[in-house]
Simulated assay, not measured.
Amino acid sequence: MTRPKRVCVFCGSMVGAREDYAEAARELGREVARRGLGLVYGGGAVGLMGIAADSALSAGAEVIGVIPHGLLKREVGHGGGVEMHVVDTMHERKAKMAELSDGFIVLPGGFGTLEEAVEALTWAQLGIQAKGVVFLDVAGFWTPFLDVLDFMQREGFVREAQRPLAMRATTVAEALDKLAAFAPPPGTQPWLRPEQA
Rank of each mutant, 00 (worst) to 15 (best):
M1N: 11
M1W: 08
T2D: 12
T2R: 11
P4I: 00
P4Q: 01
V7I: 15
C8N: 11
G12Y: 00
S13F: 05
S13P: 10
S13H: 06
M14W: 14
G16C: 07
G16F: 08
R18W: 10
E19S: 09
E19Y: 00
E19K: 11
E19V: 09
D20Y: 03
Y21S: 13
A22N: 10
A22Q: 14
E23N: 14
E27G: 09
L28W: 13
G29Q: 02
R30W: 05
E31F: 11
V32C: 12
G36F: 02
G36V: 03
L37K: 02
L37P: 04
L37T: 00
G38F: 00
L39T: 12
V40P: 02
G42D: 03
G44F: 11
A45V: 04
A45K: 12
G47H: 06
G47R: 08
L48A: 14
L48Q: 14
L48E: 15
G50K: 08
I51R: 05
I51Q: 09
A52K: 15
A52G: 14
A56W: 05
A56G: 04
A56C: 10
L57W: 05
G60A: 02
A61T: 00
E62D: 11
I64C: 07
I64D: 05
V66K: 12
I67T: 07
I67H: 09
P68S: 02
P68W: 00
H69F: 08
H69C: 05
L71K: 09
L71W: 07
R74Q: 12
G77A: 15
G77S: 13
G79V: 12
G79T: 15
G80F: 10
E83C: 00
E83T: 08
M84L: 14
T89R: 01
E92F: 03
M97L: 12
A98R: 00
E99Q: 14
L100Q: 01
D102M: 02
D102P: 05
G103V: 07
F104Y: 14
L107P: 01
P108F: 01
P108V: 02
G109M: 04
G110W: 06
G110N: 02
G110L: 04
F111Q: 11
L114C: 04
E115A: 03
A117T: 03
A117W: 04
V118C: 11
W123S: 06
Q125L: 05
L126W: 11
G127D: 05
I128L: 15
K131V: 07
V133H: 07
V133N: 05
D137Q: 02
V138R: 06
G140K: 04
W142E: 07
W142V: 07
P144C: 14
F145D: 09
L146Q: 01
D147E: 14
V148F: 15
Q153D: 08
E155W: 05
E155V: 03
E155D: 11
A161K: 12
R163N: 07
P164V: 08
L165A: 13
R168D: 10
R168M: 10
T170V: 10
V172H: 04
E174M: 00
L176S: 06
L176I: 03
D177S: 02
D177P: 00
K178H: 12
A180N: 05
A181K: 13
F182R: 13
A183L: 15
T188R: 07
L192T: 05
L192E: 06
L192H: 12
R193F: 06
P194M: 06
E195S: 12
Q196V: 04
A197L: 15
A197W: 14
